[in-house]
Amino acid sequence: MGNDTPTHPDPKGIFTDISVELTGFDRAELGGTGMVDTYYDTLLRMIGEREAGQLFRYAQEALDADRKEQRKDNAAFKKAVIDNPRFGPVALGLIKLWYLGRWYPLSAAYRDRFGSTADDVEHVVSGQGYREGLVWAAAGAHPMGAKPPGFGSWAEPPSPTP
């Protein structure tokens, strides 16, 4: 986005910023999975456009505040999203979605208060989502059944994980 932040915020851009914060993978890594659009749509399918809009607004304000104060712990984001009963459970779902490629339903307690859509059931979003699960990269491995690293690669020392 650069310095000229648009007056009408780009929701997918904010979604990516939130995802970076939740996963510990940077924009390039997340973009490289090809899943940003799909997961953006998934979020909207689960909690609806209006609620997602609220999440984006709160998250962006918090991220802006963290940036302005140059906070390394991103305390404002944590308070506004992770620890917030309204957005915390959604953030949980997004972390699992990015890491595992599957949507785990929002908790019953959350649904009682804020509701969710009929699509909010456990499911694998797509074969690609499975293959792009961040857990495999975090483990220094590759998804089981895809992206094979080549004959004999398993005999080599593991790459150090960050």
Partner: peptide, 16 residues
């Protein structure tokens, strides 16, 4: 409690 115990870089590092 609906709050992630680990997220972001900490989560990635711990999994690694």
């Amino acid at each position: 409690d609906g709050k992630a115990q680990l997220h972001g870089r900490e989560l990635r590092k711990r999994l690694g």
